[in-house]
Design a protein around this nucleic acid. Structure first.
Lengths: 240, 240
DNA sequence: TTCCAAAAGTCTGGAAACAGACCATTGGCG
DNA sequence: CGCCAATGGTCTGTTTCCAGACTTTTGGAA
């Protein structure tokens, strides 16, 4: 015996009530830029089905976000819920405050999780034979980040990282990667996007893509580790 | 803006109703051997709190499992819900049937996910400086698997694999690893535990532990890949 | 033998979530 | 200008889920 109860399995079956979970999810969609500022969420009826909740509950969540200033809801044909949120231009936003709001150990947990997921995803992808179409997607995402305007940088960086997991074809892995990214979004949004950091990141991104396209999992691992440790170090620097 | 909707984020907020999810979770606890055969689940009131559901809902789930023959429920002091399930002695259980019940692509999804998670976890652990206590836990779990009676083999194998993720100290990663394992439990339970396979697995397990204790992430990666690909090949062989 | 504590079992009223029908608003198109 | 389709807004009855009080069973301890 001697099994300690494996908290993972005996933990909560559901994170909260449907309303709260929905608010959280929509907030993630907005903050990660899955729907870019100015963009529109799918129609209520459709979105409710996708999220597996009733329209009533979805509307409550949308209203909360509207009142909080994240969405602009317009009726009539061509109406909908439009994203008005602009990520706080990095450089402002108190990083320490964000960290303080996280539980103790939660920061390390998130960084470790992200490291494991992204390493794993990159390696799997490097091991997989990629079709030319998929190679192109990867190159494209990389180019998008490199060409990004400062205001779009985080969003496109997110898209790049998630693309790696998505291209493995594993929905579970894509979902885990999105989760991992979410755990650090607020942190990343709170540190400035500086020229030298972007240059480093670009080189590391390029190394990741090269290793993946090259089918070299070991190089992919090294590139991911270097990149993520760079980010972690940056965070620590801003916290020190 | 040409974003395709990132299914991960726009997917269902909750998997089903509370009852179904609870049944599923308890079944996992039983099948993974988190509570060993003969063992007792926590008291209803306590368990309901841990699972974040009401006692009524929990009781419905327990009753369903009782009627399905997984649990024996006894009242009175020293009563409780006792696990009576014995993993179907491998060799029986129709693997094809299990696979058929999974959705299309779900098998590959699960195997890919598991590969990524376990590779990531092993590497992270190999990169981390481990305390002697933690090293000991790892060695211990390895020894447990090697000494396992056939009936206990899967359970202890599970414990070994999960220990790697847990030792990273990341609850998120431990949870993801448990999830990944769950996705393949039914499959593994449906294939026989054969001597030669156990020997291979033992050698691979040992290689994983050695690489981790050695602080060699690259060797850890190779060992994990070899081990998991061996399992995947075994599955394919039984499906062919 | 009696009592007690810990556990499962039962009941009730209320809140949350849902499904589905229906209403109101809006902008383009004929 | 008037219609129409797409969308958000509202209402109603039903089901699920919950919190909490109460009941019954059981085995050990006094």
């Amino acid at each position: 015996m001697g099994e300690q109860p494996l908290v993972a399995l005996l933990g909560p079956v559901r994170a909260g009530n449907a309303f709260e979970e929905t608010v959280e999810r929509l907030l993630q969609v907005i903050k990660l830029g899955v729907v870019a500022p100015g963009g529109k969420l799918p129609p209520e009826r459709e979105l409710a089905v996708q999220l597996g909740i009733s329209r009533v509950t979805l509307r409550e969540a949308i209203r909360a976000l509207q009142e909080a200033g994240y969405l602009d809801v317009r009726r009539g044909r061509y109406g909908g819920a439009f994203v008005v949120y602009e990520p706080p231009l990095p450089g402002r936003g108190d990083l320490r405050e964000v960290v303080r709001r996280m539980g103790p150990g939660e920061l390390d947990d998130a960084l470790t999780f992200r490291m494991a997921i992204e390493c794993g995803a990159a390696q799997v992808l490097a091991t997989t034979g990629l079709t030319e179409g998929r190679r192109e997607v990867l190159r494209r995402r990389l180019a998008d980040v490199n060409d990004a305007a400062p205001a779009d940088y985080r969003r496109l960086d997110t898209a790049f990282h998630l693309a790696i997991a998505e291209l493995t074809g594993s929905a579970l892995l894509a979902s885990a990667a999105a989760d991992a990214r979410l755990r650090v979004t607020d942190l990343l949004n709170a540190i400035p996007v500086l020229g030298p950091n972007i240059d480093h990141a670009a080189a590391q991104h390029a190394a990741m893509v090269a290793a993946i396209l090259d089918g070299d999992p070991e190089a992919a691992r090294r590139a991911v580790v270097e990149h993520l440790e760079g980010t972690a170090a940056l965070l620590r620097a801003f916290l020190a």
